[in-house]
Amino acid sequence: MRMEVHESPAVTVERAEKVYRHALLGRTQAAVRDVSFSVEPGTIHGMLGPNGAGKTTTLKMLLGLVWPSGGTFRIHGQDSTRPAGRRGLGFMPEQPYFPQHLTAAGALRLYARLADVETDAIGTRISGLLERVGLAGRERATLDTFSRGMLQRLGIAQALINEPAVVILDEPASGLDPVGQRDIRNLMLSLRDAGVTVLLSSHQLSEVEAVCDRVTILNRGIVAAEGDIDDLLNVSGRASLKVRGFSAGLPREVARHADQVAVSGGVWVFSVADAAVRAVVDAIDDAHATLVSVTPMRDSLEDYFARLLADSAREVTRS
């Protein structure tokens, strides 16, 4: 994979707008309003939102597939609504489809040529990519014999054929079995390790939570939340502690701060406020007990997402 050093954000979307106009009735409907976000190089950035939130429209505007009503769209500083600005980009659409008469290698060869890949490099790149996405040995199979999951894998290979610096994946794990989903997660992580920027649109919140460094959540065409995953989810302000060796029960200093206390097989599990962690750890030392783990308590992305949408719905009802 390409490892170029870029100072500026890999992807920049500023004040994106898309308004659809009904040709006959003259009615307008805003699908995307004032959406801005940026993706740092070498990170995995998630785009989340319920159906109709504007994710796909925003991605399509970034890819020059839908004309924006306003805003700017840049990939490594270049206007991505123009063909030249998309040359260093890989894109896998949701449920990718290919001409069925092609073989797997034939399809990749076609896209390699379209992406101006040097002719000498095409063969080795195709075999390397097919192996990477788990389709080794299927080079000569025609695509009408491929399952949905195999087409999904080929879609990812297609997105990577030009060794892009930025990859946009729309629901990459859709239609894959659990092993395939894990493979895709590992692939995204390996891309990030190689310095590739990944913009991931997905409904699979566990997948996003597992791989993304940062997320942008869209709802009703606007940015409802944006930030590092850890910052967004670590909102409880509490930590969970696991301790072994409290033979005489909880020491007074620990008991003063502990909540949700549970004991099983001599292991005590309880939560304390972040501000009290230091004092509690000292008390555990004084009691000669063993601190097994300290884990920040945080929301799951699913809980956070559901709460955000519920808050948004309440605001709309109020207004």
């Binding site: 890819l63 020059g64 597939l65 063909p83 030249a84 600005g85 998309r86 040359r87 980009l89 890989g90 894109f91 659409p93 449920q95 990718p96 489809y97 290919f98 001409p99 896209y111 379209l114 992406a115 101006d116 879609g155 297609q158 030009n162 946009i168």
Partner: peptide, 10 residues
Amino acid sequence: RTVYNVLSKG
């Protein structure tokens, strides 16, 4: 949507 694969290649 096969055209997406083509146009996204620049």
